[in-house]
Design a protein around this nucleic acid. Structure first.
Lengths: 140, 140
DNA sequence: ATCGCTGCAAACAATTTGCAGCCGC
DNA sequence: GCGGCTGCAAATTGTTTGCAGCGAT
């Protein structure tokens, strides 16, 4: 989908900065930090400001255009949301690629939570490791 | 277990600062951030320094005395490790209590990962919500 | 006497905010 | 034209580092 469409669909104003941010994420094969997005946007739009990037990441997140992911070492990363429903990610520690997975552990644990009287509202499940390509490279 | 014992068992030097940090965590019913630990330690030891707290959290983490937990809103929190083996946590969004759980989703997903050629090395699984007490309070 | 631990100040990194002007609708 | 969006600078927040002195072995 085209960047402009994405924005219009969310009833967001179409600005060159927003388009650039989405484009960067579309072209990226890995999950990116706010700073990395900024660095990539600045290449094509030399006077964007970092705060603009932060502000737009926020609105795009709220609208569900982006996913927020926590890296293995607690850094916050973003990617374009490609899947519709609820899902989790596997993230490659080498190339930063993220692979969506359907599996969600919550079904398997609801009973146990219920037993403890705990009412779950959110959860986090992320797997880190090496993707197929990087696994092979490391073995060599 | 007594704070001094904990440190000795890990072959760490026993210092009043370290003892105070562990004590704070022992007395706390919730998971704490570095700054919160600092705030609590300073009450009993007015001239500790924040960097001392950070440095000691690091060594205690490395020795496995502490667990590092990521809050729902991506803040890093700590608690005394109470369980021995691998485990995950349920964290109450209201009171900050953390409840360890044995269940780990990795067993259930290994096959799927294998199919995708992904080699997992680490993972993160945390559940946020309301503990029994806080659930009841909210219903009233 | 040595080496690790601490306090202090300063540096650093990541993110947020206030404000004035600009731009998309 | 209005209200949201942006750039810029400055403020915050969270964490790390260099250094000199202290303290335990």
């Amino acid at each position: 989908m085209d960047t402009e469409e994405i924005l219009k669909k969310q009833k967001l104003k179409v600005t060159p900065q927003r388009k650039a941010i989405i484009q960067v994420l579309q072209n990226s094969s890995s999950v990116l930090s706010a700073q990395e997005i900024f660095a990539a946007v600045i290449d094509v739009m030399p006077n964007v400001n970092l705060s603009t990037v932060y502000r737009n990441i926020d609105v795009l997140l709220k609208k569900g255009v982006l996913c927020r992911i926590t890296s293995e070492d607690d850094k916050i990363l973003y990617e374009l949301r490609r899947e519709k429903g609820h899902h989790h990610h596997i993230i490659c520690k080498k190339c930063g690629a993220s692979i969506p997975i359907d599996y969600c552990p919550m079904e398997d644990i609801e009973k146990e939570l219920d037993k403890k009287g705990f009412t779950p509202t959110e959860h986090r499940f992320e797997i880190y490791g090496y993707c197929e390509k990087c696994s092979k490279k490391l073995k060599k």
